[in-house]
Amino acid sequence: MGRHCRARLGRHPRRTHQDLLALDPHYRIESFSTKLGGLRLQVADRFREGEFDGEFADRVAALTDAAESFSEQTCELCGAPGRIRFRGEGPQIWMQSSCEQCRTRPTHPDRHDVHQSRHPASP
């Protein structure tokens, strides 16, 4: 997992968590990171009576795929509709999902003080 992972779940995190809880109240996230500007989420496989639970794996894959896809279309900074964009300049370039308004906001991938949750009021 990346040291400073700030990706959002795309869909509301509580909803994704509730969906996973409905499948297995003891589900476990194996990894949560960003790659190419989007969320990457892996849930541990489940075994029942020593056998791999393929149905569980398929249902989890559908949920995590939806969350990952949605994260690529949701601004990491404010939650508005967005898309993957290149950020930074020179040797400090990274990919980040952002909306049109937030794409020019100064930011750095290692900052922990993630930006205001809403756009500043227009003059």
Results as ranks from 00 to 15, higher is better:
residue 2 G to M: 13
residue 2 G to N: 15
residue 2 G to C: 10
residue 3 R to K: 12
residue 6 R to G: 12
residue 8 R to F: 02
residue 8 R to L: 01
residue 10 G to D: 03
residue 11 R to H: 11
residue 14 R to E: 10
residue 17 H to S: 07
residue 18 Q to K: 11
residue 18 Q to F: 00
residue 19 D to H: 07
residue 19 D to M: 09
residue 19 D to N: 11
residue 20 L to A: 06
residue 21 L to N: 08
residue 22 A to S: 12
residue 24 D to K: 03
residue 24 D to N: 11
residue 25 P to V: 02
residue 27 Y to Q: 01
residue 31 S to E: 11
residue 32 F to C: 05
residue 33 S to C: 09
residue 34 T to H: 14
residue 35 K to M: 00
residue 38 G to M: 05
residue 39 L to R: 05
residue 40 R to V: 10
residue 40 R to L: 02
residue 43 V to T: 06
residue 43 V to S: 05
residue 44 A to D: 07
residue 47 F to M: 11
residue 48 R to D: 12
residue 48 R to I: 15
residue 49 E to K: 12
residue 50 G to M: 03
residue 50 G to A: 01
residue 51 E to D: 12
residue 51 E to G: 05
residue 51 E to I: 07
residue 52 F to M: 06
residue 56 F to S: 10
residue 56 F to P: 09
residue 57 A to M: 02
residue 58 D to A: 15
residue 59 R to E: 13
residue 60 V to F: 11
residue 60 V to W: 05
residue 61 A to T: 12
residue 61 A to K: 15
residue 64 T to P: 10
residue 65 D to I: 07
residue 65 D to Y: 12
residue 65 D to C: 15
residue 67 A to C: 09
residue 68 E to I: 00
residue 69 S to I: 04
residue 69 S to C: 06
residue 70 F to E: 15
residue 72 E to N: 09
residue 74 T to I: 07
residue 75 C to G: 08
residue 75 C to M: 04
residue 76 E to N: 14
residue 76 E to A: 10
residue 77 L to Y: 11
residue 78 C to A: 00
residue 79 G to V: 11
residue 79 G to I: 05
residue 80 A to N: 11
residue 80 A to S: 13
residue 82 G to R: 13
residue 83 R to D: 01
residue 83 R to Q: 07
residue 83 R to T: 06
residue 85 R to S: 04
residue 87 R to T: 03
residue 88 G to S: 05
residue 88 G to N: 09
residue 89 E to V: 14
residue 89 E to Q: 13
residue 89 E to S: 14
residue 92 Q to I: 08
residue 92 Q to L: 07
residue 93 I to Y: 01
residue 94 W to N: 10
residue 98 S to G: 15
residue 98 S to C: 14
residue 99 C to M: 01
residue 100 E to T: 11
residue 100 E to P: 05
residue 100 E to M: 05
residue 101 Q to V: 15
residue 101 Q to W: 01
residue 103 R to N: 14
residue 104 T to A: 14
residue 106 P to Q: 03
residue 108 H to D: 12
residue 108 H to S: 06
residue 109 P to C: 04
residue 109 P to S: 04
residue 110 D to Y: 11
residue 110 D to I: 04
residue 112 H to F: 02
residue 114 V to Q: 14
residue 114 V to F: 06
residue 116 Q to Y: 02
residue 116 Q to T: 08
residue 118 R to D: 08
residue 120 P to F: 01
residue 123 P to F: 03
